[in-house]
Write a protein that binds this DNA or RNA. Structure first.
Length: 266
DNA sequence: TCATTAACCGTCG
DNA sequence: CGACGGTTAATGA
């Protein structure tokens, strides 16, 4: 069951310019002229979701492409024993699930709003139409899909790391790659609020284990948490502690000087 | 609701 | 055996 937000409520209408701005920042429309982006925005709708509201559920038929405009969204699988495995977190300008939007098969994960969130929706027929008009989009889609695949690869590599500390460390480094902003020499802040439960579900451990590992890292001065925002004070030491040495996945932490990460991509 | 700590317990190398 | 991590419970913010 998908509970959808109200289409174009008054609040959503007022937020439409914000949604268009988010679309313009999306890597999906890289290389398109502003009026071309505008024509895509004109074909899409804006939906509003409250914290905890489900955008779509794993197994739901995919009706189109969702792009986050404002707020935060978590994507996860519900695992048999009642726990949940986080597939990824989304920030504004990121697509929720490119794969299903383009192959039309059911959603691979459940998407839940973490904050009040505005999302752009483009139905599959309109998406197909837009692609026909702007073939440049295909290259952007492929790039986005490749990033989704990399993220999944990191997830499986993470699960294969033998102990919980390693998985937590790997999850932190990957989140830093995605949401990191420079916070001084060798330090990166994960600019995304995450509960301990979020971290635990991302790493595939219980919340207590996540707390144990994080407390330990905190005691060593490697990380520091403030109001659900984690700062890695010493990336190099976290890498050592996580034994990333021979990991072939691209967890390398980057942060641009102006504090922006590349356009919302996972 | 979220975070933390500690005690306890089963598994596995 | 002993490290590890899940379970449970208690407590504080």
């Amino acid at each position: 069951m998908t509970q959808q937000g109200l289409a174009y409520s008054g609040a959503a209408r007022r937020s439409a310019p914000t949604a268009r701005a988010a679309l313009a920042r999306s890597p999906l429309v890289d290389g398109l002229a502003p009026d071309e982006v505008e024509s895509i925005a004109a074909e899409s709708s804006v939906y509003w979701f409250e914290p905890g509201q489900v955008v779509f559920e794993e197994g739901d038929p995919c009706r189109g492409l969702w792009i986050l405009a404002t707020g935060r969204v978590r994507l996860h699988h519900d695992v048999s024993d009642g726990r949940s495995q986080v597939v990824g977190f989304r920030a504004p300008a990121a697509a929720l699930e490119l794969g299903s939007a383009f192959d039309g098969r059911p959603h691979l994960a459940t998407a839940v709003a973490l904050d009040d969130s505005a999302l752009l929706f483009l139905s599959r027929p309109r998406l197909a139409d837009v692609i026909r008009r702007y073939p440049q989009l295909l290259a952007n889609v492929i790039a986005g899909l490749c990033l989704e695949i990399r993220q999944r690869d990191i997830l499986t590599a993470n699960a294969a790391l033998k102990d919980a500390r390693g998985r937590i460390g790997c999850a932190l480094l990957q989140l830093a790659r995605q949401f990191g902003v420079a916070a001084g020499p060798g330090a990166v802040q994960i600019a995304y609020r995450l509960t301990r439960q979020d971290i635990a579900d991302r790493a595939g451990v219980t919340i207590e284990t996540a707390i144990r590992a994080l407390s330990e890292l905190q005691r060593k001065g490697i990380v520091q948490t403030d109001a659900q925002v984690i700062e890695i004070r010493d990336v190099a030491r976290l890498r050592v502690a996580t034994e990333c040495g021979d990991c072939q996945f691209d967890c390398s932490v980057f942060a641009t000087p102006n504090g922006k990460h590349p356009a919302g991509h996972p």
